[in-house]
Design a protein around this nucleic acid. Structure first.
Length: 372
RNA sequence: CGGGGAGUGGCUCAGCCUGGUAGAGCACCUGGUUCGGGACCAGGGGGUCGGAGGUUCAAAUCCUCUCUCCCCGACCA
């Protein structure tokens, strides 16, 4: 019996988390780039599934995807007093480009309210232009003091929604609508129960009137802020002069919202479901839903088992693990650590009985499954 | 930024205290036997010990400086 490469949750939760991420082929520290990670195949595939679920809901509620520059003129950040105060300490700044000192440095976006505010001002003239409902899938950089894979990395992937409305009521409806979308995805896709609520004044987004969040509970009893939705009021509208004429012909500033979830969700997913044996993924977010492990000894068995295993795997949509030189035991551990929800076993005994063995990752239970 | 830990084949680490020209396990390659929860035997390839300087006949090992990563705390999606 080989020793498990995974530290138990009771022994050391933080180390357990790291082990799960590493052993589950989710990510690894980039090392050469401070605080950054390489999102590996299994982790990125989960992110893609999660993106799809979120994106479908954004589109269904009238939002459109756009893309804004990674680099933002430094002066933009300074236009909103609280915003600059909140983000200045964690900005990465580009001062040299093309071999020359830049006249005005660019900051690498920590979030895009400012640059999007600039363009909203160009695009919005009339109440008929409203609402503007934009989403951006992007990477951002925040120079955090301490990082943990997925939970807080220097660079991370996220989506940021940015909307502009004619009045505060509509903006607030949007803020709460998107909070509900986040809660829906968390609970019904990620199987991660959350509590919706209002953040305290000290915890709200820098530049927002109010910040709402969904909070999830982890196995160590900690809460994880899993998504936020901000009522920006007219703060950015005023800072970037986003004015429009209302139906009475008067000038007014737009009411804006912004909302985002990030690759941190994957950290929450891991800390919600995984166990001391490895990653556990809910079926809706599992890149590989089922794996078939064929078992055989002699050559004549091998031919029969492989033939049936391939056939059954194809029928049920399972990936077949027919790697040579790996024992079945080694394969079981391999897939268990990667969170595959269903592992099927097929050997001579099952062949004779007309069954395959079906094992669930979440419960660990095994049951016979008819081959037909 | 404060506190702790660690940098030695791809990975995990031993060796350092008591200097004497680099080891183990895993992984990898070849051959054979295996295969129902991490197989075994035999053979083989691969490192100059984070970096710089110093002491010494001789430095992974002693001294000085330095860089990086990880964990805990404060800050944040």
């Amino acid at each position: 019996m080989a020793e498990s490469p995974i530290t138990s949750r009771n022994q050391d939760f933080a180390t357990w988390y790291q082990d799960i991420v590493l052993q589950g082929d989710m990510a690894e520290p980039a090392e050469i780039v401070k605080g950054c990670m390489v999102i590996k195949a299994n982790g990125y595939a989960v992110w893609e599934l999660l993106q799809r679920q979120l994106d479908d809901r954004f589109k269904a509620s009238g939002h459109q995807n756009m893309y804004f520059p990674l680099l933002i003129p430094q002066s933009f950040l300074q236009k909103e007093a609280e915003h600059v105060e909140g983000f200045s300490p964690e900005l990465a700044v580009v001062t040299v480009a093309g071999g020359k000192q830049l006249e005005e440095p660019y900051v690498i976006r920590p979030t895009s309210e400012t640059i999007i505010g600039h363009f909203f001002a160009k695009w919005i003239k009339s109440y008929r232009d409203l609402p503007v409902l934009v989403n951006q899938w992007a990477n951002i950089i925040r120079w955090e003091l301490r990082t943990r894979m997925f939970l807080r990395t220097t660079e991370f992937l996220w989506q940021e929604g940015h909307t502009a409305h004619a009045n505060h009521e509509e903006a607030m409806e949007e803020v709460l609508r998107m909070l509900d979308v986040y809660a829906d995805v968390a609970e019904n896709v990620m199987a991660m129960p959350v509590i919706k609520g209002l953040k305290t004044q000290s915890e709200r987004f820098a530049g927002a009137l109010r910040t709402y969040s969904i909070e999830a509970f982890m196995q160590n009893g900690f809460a994880l802020q899993a998504g936020t939705s901000h009522d920006l009021g007219q703060n950015f509208g005023k800072a970037f002069d986003v004015q429009f004429q209302n139906s009475e012909g008067q000038l007014d500033y737009v009411w804006q919202t912004s909302w985002g979830v990030s690759t941190r969700l994957i950290g929450g997913l891991i800390m919600s479901h995984s166990d001391d044996k490895g990653l556990v993924l809910p079926p809706k977010l599992a890149p590989t839903k089922a794996v078939m492990v064929p078992i055989y000894r002699k050559d004549d068995e091998k031919a029969k088992v492989l033939e049936a295993a391939h056939r059954i795997a194809k029928d049920v949509g399972a990936k077949i693990d027919d790697r040579e030189g790996q024992s079945p035991g080694a394969k079981f551990f391999h897939w268990e650590r990667r969170g595959v929800p269903i592992v099927l076993e097929l050997g001579p005994r099952d062949l004779a009985a007309g069954n395959a063995v079906l094992k669930r990752r979440d419960t660990g239970t095994k049951e016979p499954m008819p081959q037909a």
